[in-house]
Amino acid sequence: MTAATAAPALRVTGLSKSYGTHTVLRDITVDVRAGETLCLIGPSGSGKSTLLKCLNLLETPDNGEIWLGETHLTAPGADVDAARARIGMVFQHFNLFPHMSVERNVSIALTSVKGLPRDRARETALRRLAEVGLEAFADRRPSQLSGGQQQRVAIARALAMQPDVMLFDEATSALDPELVKDVLAVMRDLAAGGMTMAVVTHEMGFAREAADRVAFMCDGRLAEIDTPGRIFERAENPRLRQFLSQVL
């Protein structure tokens, strides 16, 4: 846990999103401060994942603004690709590229997006893989790795781009229980190292220990946002209390 500085790395104001007549997100306003770990919790269907995917515009919000530092992402004509290169994302189902080696998974965006020469990209990729303890697997295919290893490769892939912000979308939900702790350990190290993170998670232990703030989402709204202590120990919102009683 690090003390978050005041400047927001990511700022969301008045964000809403619906699919047809079904409203998924209602008027969300939230900051992710630089260096902060913000955990998003809430019942399934509450809009956590959709909110996260709106942050890097994998989902297009209907209304509202998103700012990444000084860059207005929802402005007309904004360079969304360039912005996404500054926002790392880790998915529930890893989404590694199965037709590439582990090393190429990590280096592909370095060469194709950042324009690094192939050998330097490989060097960077191997260093990132070493950080998650998987450099020995560099020349394997993702399918030859366990789920936990694959997710750590996915984290290395996102980190290789040196993002300003990391988004984690239920990064441990698809893993067998015994594989969860290694992925969480990597995420804890990142948080401790001062990475700005927005984490959708069902791991209440992680949220309690690693988060600077916890946001509780419910019916597409941001119902509560506070320190883990106040969210977990002194919850007053009845929906939050009900949710916590079910998951703790």
Binding site: L58, R84, F91, F97, A109
Partner: peptide, 14 residues
């Protein structure tokens, strides 16, 4: 899998 396109786009690819 649509997740493949999402992952590639999330890395900044057009």
């Amino acid at each position: 899998d649509p997740g493949q396109l999402q992952a590639a786009r999330s890395l900044g690819m057009s």
